[in-house]
Amino acid sequence: MSIQHFRVALIPFFAAFCLPVFAHPETLVKVKDAEDQLGARVGYIELDLNSGKILESFRPEERFPMMSTFKVLLCGAVLSRVDAGQEQLGRRIHYSQNDLVEYSPVTEKHLTDGMTVRELCSAAITMSDNTAANLLLTTIGGPKELTAFLHNMGDHVTRLDRWEPELNEAIPNDERDTTMPAAMATTLRKLLTGELLTLASRQQLIDWMEADKVAGPLLRSALPAGWFIADKSGAGERGSRGIIAALGPDGKPSRIVVIYTTGSQATMDERNRQIAEIGASLIKHW
């Protein structure tokens, strides 16, 4: 067993022997301040990774656009098919120029040779490549099948209805392509620590998230040296922004954090800054 596999296998073990965790309302004060600064709703939840206990939450059962955070769930569904012998990570998928959609920095470079399922998941999570996500959605049967996968996990809230990039439209009061912070946090925890996926697939999923290259201005910008984070960000229309993450000190994750916002007129930089400040408060009061 590799060191990384050992780390993920012992996530519940280490967490069980940690000192009790206590909620700190100071972080919620910052979440509410972010709402004021952005002029928009902000949803927040913080779960203990081992027990699933909610440590703090704000608007945990209000719907927010998922945006690209759905790509972690998508690759979880792909990995479940791999575990069941219905898919192979090494299978190569070929596609054409007509398949390319807006923001496809990886797939646009491989029109000639195609990409493997493993490479597509890596591109979808680490670079948020939209064509990679659409190609992977095709392998599982489309958005409705991802929703069905989530329902089978016990998540009857999260739903995907459309493809990239239309799913980022974020129309107010439109339930399409949305989740709730509580539902997303619980589902992410199941994917990373539950028995739904094999140990190898859980490790692969967290490795992809740990290698995320496009979430630097968010929670990662607030992390002290030595902290662990595996995350996936999302951005959408109407001032929408979000991030889902597993993080913790001492090089291992111990909490799940989900943050979503929508309806702001603020710039992307300002949305990023507010999420980073929430992260800084979380870490300060850990």
Rank of each mutant, 00 (worst) to 15 (best):
residue 254 S to M: 14
residue 168 N to T: 07
residue 71 K to Y: 00
residue 283 I to L: 11
residue 119 E to R: 05
residue 174 D to P: 02
residue 28 L to M: 12
residue 106 V to C: 09
residue 4 Q to E: 15
residue 49 L to I: 14
residue 73 L to Y: 06
residue 137 L to V: 08
residue 278 I to T: 03
residue 250 D to S: 14
residue 189 R to M: 10
residue 59 R to M: 04
residue 142 G to H: 04
residue 160 L to F: 10
residue 181 P to Y: 00
residue 25 P to D: 10
residue 45 I to Y: 10
residue 159 R to M: 07
residue 201 S to Q: 06
residue 277 E to L: 12
residue 147 T to L: 07
residue 78 V to A: 06
residue 183 A to S: 11
residue 142 G to Y: 02
residue 222 A to E: 13
residue 20 P to E: 12
residue 87 E to K: 02
residue 42 V to N: 04
residue 220 R to G: 04
residue 190 K to Q: 12
residue 92 R to W: 09
residue 34 A to G: 07
residue 45 I to P: 00
residue 157 V to L: 10
residue 200 A to E: 14
residue 149 F to W: 14
residue 101 V to N: 07
residue 137 L to R: 01
residue 122 S to T: 12
residue 47 L to G: 03
residue 148 A to L: 14
residue 2 S to G: 08
residue 133 A to Q: 00
residue 253 P to G: 08
residue 204 Q to P: 02
residue 51 S to K: 09
residue 193 T to F: 10
residue 281 S to V: 15
residue 143 P to I: 05
residue 259 I to T: 03
residue 274 Q to G: 09
residue 189 R to A: 14
residue 187 T to P: 00
residue 260 Y to V: 06
residue 45 I to W: 01
residue 225 A to V: 13
residue 246 A to H: 04
residue 248 G to Y: 01
residue 33 D to T: 15
residue 115 M to G: 02
residue 268 M to T: 08
residue 220 R to D: 03
residue 192 L to M: 15
residue 178 T to Q: 03
residue 153 M to I: 14
residue 79 L to H: 01
residue 207 D to R: 10
residue 182 A to F: 15
residue 53 K to G: 11
residue 210 E to S: 10
residue 264 S to Q: 06
residue 7 R to P: 10
residue 56 E to A: 11
residue 186 T to S: 14
residue 22 F to G: 10
residue 23 A to T: 04
residue 90 G to Q: 11
residue 208 W to D: 05
residue 60 P to R: 12
residue 146 L to R: 00
residue 260 Y to H: 01
residue 247 L to Q: 02
residue 20 P to T: 06
residue 251 G to H: 14
residue 232 K to C: 01
residue 67 M to S: 09
residue 59 R to K: 09
residue 74 L to S: 03
residue 24 H to W: 09
residue 216 G to T: 09
residue 105 P to E: 05
residue 214 V to N: 07
residue 92 R to Y: 10
residue 196 L to F: 12
residue 170 A to Y: 12
residue 86 Q to P: 05
residue 104 S to N: 05
residue 178 T to C: 07
residue 116 T to I: 06
residue 89 L to I: 07
residue 259 I to Q: 01
residue 155 D to C: 01
residue 184 M to I: 14
residue 249 P to D: 07
residue 176 R to A: 08
residue 84 A to M: 10
residue 267 T to N: 12
residue 98 N to E: 15
residue 254 S to I: 10
residue 115 M to L: 13
residue 233 S to E: 01
residue 92 R to E: 08
residue 121 C to P: 00
residue 222 A to K: 15
residue 156 H to I: 12
residue 211 A to C: 15
residue 69 T to N: 02
residue 47 L to F: 07
residue 186 T to H: 13
residue 81 R to K: 13
residue 151 H to V: 13
residue 59 R to A: 06
residue 269 D to L: 11
residue 203 Q to S: 13
residue 251 G to V: 07
residue 79 L to S: 03
residue 153 M to R: 07
